[in-house]
């Protein structure tokens, strides 16, 4: 957990600096960091928010980026399905990627056991602190760094790294290429609809390619 926590912390720091440099007012950036608690979605939502994209486009983008969590939630259900709903949802909100990976390593058997709940909360508390503290430090210290340095671009570089980690095979590369071309080509559309166009085009191409060669379909992973 220590090594992983260091990685999470560094990533939180970069996200904090990028958020402060995006032009979002500081109180809003702090609110976002504390309650949204999903790094990739935050970084993607920022340029949309500050350029005045309509709320539904901002939300749809975040929803797409967070879809992987929906799959994790099906995994969590095998362990925590027996608990009351309120408790399940409270746990779900805090369950980040890293917690899922570590939990499955510790409890490979998919059934409920009482010791899982304290293990879960311990891991979640570590992850939450390792992410939130550096993130807030980044937000507050970023004020000392001139905007001309262009450090907001660190957020884009972070998303670039996440993109690379999601490219496994030909069809993901093609889908990414299509998304990039569509997002640039449709840029002149109002309301940042180019994002929606790009997602639709990439999903269509991806599903077409899966149909053409349906031998494999691995799930995606990325870091938050």
């Amino acid at each position: 957990m220590t090594g992983a926590a260091l990685g999470i912390g560094a990533w939180g720091l970069v996200t904090g600096v990028a958020m402060a440099k995006s032009g979002l007012p500081l109180p809003l950036a702090v609110l976002m960091s504390v309650i949204v608690f999903a790094g990739s979605a935050q970084l993607a939502a920022l340029p949309l928010l500050t350029s005045g994209a309509p709320l539904w486009v901002v939300w749809a983008t975040a929803l797409c980026i967070n879809l992987r969590f929906a799959v994790f939630s099906a995994g969590w259900r095998r362990y925590f399905g027996v608990l009351p709903r309120g408790k399940r949802l409270r746990m779900a909100y805090f369950a980040a990627d890293l917690n899922y990976v570590l939990f499955l390593r510790r409890f490979p058997e998919p059934r409920h056991a009482p010791e899982q709940v304290p293990y879960f909360w311990g891991g979640v508390a570590c992850n939450w602190t390792a992410w939130q503290v550096p993130s807030l430090v980044g937000l507050l210290l970023a004020d000392r760094i001139p905007t001309a340095w262009g450090l907001g671009f660190a957020g884009t570089l972070a998303l670039l790294g996440i993109t690379y980690s999601m490219l496994h095979d030909r069809s993901t590369w093609v889908a990414a290429g299509v998304a990039a071309c569509a997002a640039v080509a449709a840029y002149a559309l109002p309301l940042k609809l180019n994002i929606v166009v790009a997602i639709a085009a990439a999903v269509a191409i991806g599903l077409l390619m899966d149909h053409a060669s349906p031998q494999r379909a691995q799930p995606l992973e990325d870091k938050t």
Binding site: S40, C64, L167, I199, A202, Q218, D222
Partner: peptide, 20 residues
Amino acid sequence: LQQGLRYAPLAAVVAVVAPE
């Protein structure tokens, strides 16, 4: 969901990155 999940998050991230 399983299938769409393969491409939707990737596309959403790329669509933000490419114009930036």
